[in-house]
């Protein structure tokens, strides 16, 4: 069998908040150069999966590896956009300088961003179509524009692996198209992109592979093989009362 390099692997991951278990014994792997969607109902633990993978919250047990290494050694190679940016929108910073922040991880301590770094930030801003707004204060943008600024910042990080938590929420159709185009381009350049996504109707069109979770791992693999009625029924049953009653009828 052809050997494929594994960019991201989750083994036996269990995470809980106090008494409440959010994720139970999750196992899956993501190959390098794939665009992968993580799907599941509200409260399924999708955001928790990302935060635990990045070491932002503690896990009960399990092993997370990026190219066979623990996250601690790989942080500079991972970009992450959280679901909700809990930042101060009145902060004295403009759009371009926000994108320049993306160059910080690779600069290391004591080094300042140079002209080349600012140029790169400018190019990333152009990719998301916001070059006109580079001098605006960050709070003076619409919600969708703000979302795109953070995408530009992630691009400026020039990482191997990207984590996006619901990048399409509150975004119009044309922005969504721009973003998915950028994500596919990253994938084609050999980057590994992991995206939490809500809209099941677009899942097959957007992603190579899917990971379907609801506390447990329901199914992981090529998009078509995950989007089966059985798997979806299993994941969404508690959310959709009519499925539950069907099940009750059967038994």
């Amino acid at each position: 069998m052809e050997h494929k390099s594994i960019a991201f692997s989750v083994q036996d991951l269990t995470v809980s908040y106090g008494e409440q278990t959010a994720l139970k014994n999750i196992n899956f792997q993501v190959e390098k150069g794939k665009l992968v969607g993580v799907i599941g109902p509200n409260g399924a633990g999708k955001s928790t999966l990302m935060k635990a993978s990045l070491g932002l919250i503690s896990k009960d047990h399990g092993t997370i590896e990026f190219y066979g290494k623990p996250v601690k050694q790989m942080r500079e190679n991972i970009a992450y956009i959280p679901q909700r940016n809990n930042i101060d929108w009145d902060f004295p910073i403009n759009v371009l300088d926000t994108v320049v922040l993306g160059t910080y991880p690779k600069l290391g301590v004591f080094h300042r961003p140079k002209k080349a770094d600012r140029k790169r930030a400018q190019a990333c801003l152009a990719q998301v179509g916001l070059q006109k707004f580079s001098k605006r204060q960050i709070g003076e943008l619409s919600g969708g524009q703000q979302q795109r600024v953070f995408l530009a910042r992630a691009l400026a990080q020039q990482t191997e692996i990207f984590f996006f938590d619901e990048p399409f929420v509150g975004i119009d159709a044309s922005s969504e198209e721009t973003i998915i185009h950028i994500l596919k381009k990253l994938r084609d350049e050999g980057k590994t992109v992991i995206v939490i996504h809500h809209d099941l109707s677009k899942a097959q069109e957007y992603f190579d592979d899917l990971v379907l979770i609801n506390q447990d791992l329901i199914e992981a693999g090529p998009a078509a093989s995950v989007l089966t009625p059985e798997a979806l029924g299993k994941a969404y049953k508690s959310q959709l009362p009519f499925l539950q009653s069907e099940e009750a009828d059967e038994s």
């Binding site: 601690k72 500079e76 991972i78 930042i87």
Partner: peptide, 10 residues
Amino acid sequence: FDPTMAAAYG
């Protein structure tokens, strides 16, 4: 400005 990003990159 963004403690989450700061923590995510270590």
